[in-house]
Amino acid sequence: MAQTSVNRVAEFGWKMKENIAQVMVGKEAAIEMLLAALLSDGHVLLEDVPGVGKTMLARALATSVGGRFSRIQCTPDLLPSDITGLSVFDQKQGDFVFRPGPVMAQIVLADEINRATPRTQSSLLEAMGEGQVTVDGHTYRLKRPFMVVATQNPVEFEGTFPLPEAQLDRFFLLLKLGYPTLDEENQVLLRLQERHPITDLGPVTDVNHVAELQHLVTQVYVEASVRDYVVRLVRSTRTQSQVQLGASPRGSLALLRAAQALAALGNRDYVTPDDVKHMATAVLAHRLTLKADSVLRGVTAESVIAELLHQVEVGAEGHQTRS
């Protein structure tokens, strides 16, 4: 991959970060990961308590990219057709007319996805996985780039339908924003004193450019030992004693893609093990199913990944790696 191509990705990242930073105070790491997901053609699940800026982040991303944006507020009575769209009978024409649903946008915000019923969730996740929807026997391809940013509140359980592990795997990243720091919260109050800056936010790129960069990111060079490290790291999740179900090969692929995107955003045309380590928790944690005993003991998927990052050999100079 030529250095000029990497420069374009880095420049894109810099512009996007600057634009999103107008509405999001702090959270640079989360923004960078979100961009990595966008460049890797992945979908993101934002999981955090209400009011920390999940929806705002998704909106800012959509506005900055300049594509078609739609928002789905998930509720228990939301039907699959409310997402995919439905064929309505047109009495004048005497035929069915397809009315596209919100999923036909390019950046889709699925707010509180765990409030939708499993069937509705699966229709959205199917669109995410396949990049197409099928309604009444007709298949409609979704426009590229297509990214779903879903949010969920981990605290509330009443009236929610937790996403099954198999469907969580379809999300490229799971991000947790966390509360802002003291200074950041002060800044938030200052900025929002008069009007919300999201209203002034404009696009800094277009969807065609994003699609082009997505292709460029796949060209970032991955040295054999780094690829090997990714595989060993993901495989190690399957043999961890606290884990019931480890990450799938889809997880390996996602981790590698995420590392490529991060390297390109960092203006590098090659991936280092640091990129892999940086993205590992966000990419892998939600793909693990912990044993019930471990959960009861307070073990979290994040702590398991952190432990593995301290155990799995990177395969750097002077150390023989074990497979």
Binding site: L78, L79, L86, V88, F89, F96, T117
Partner: peptide
């Protein structure tokens, strides 16, 4: 409790106040 959209029990004629989202278009046609 709430009607469960995953468990379709049957069809009936439209009545005033029914949400449009619940219209079964193939049957209507």
């Amino acid at each position: 409790m709430n009607p469960d959209p995953t468990r379709l029990a049957g069809l009936r004629r439209y009545q005033m106040g029914d949400p449009l989202r619940t219209i079964h278009w193939p049957a209507t046609a």
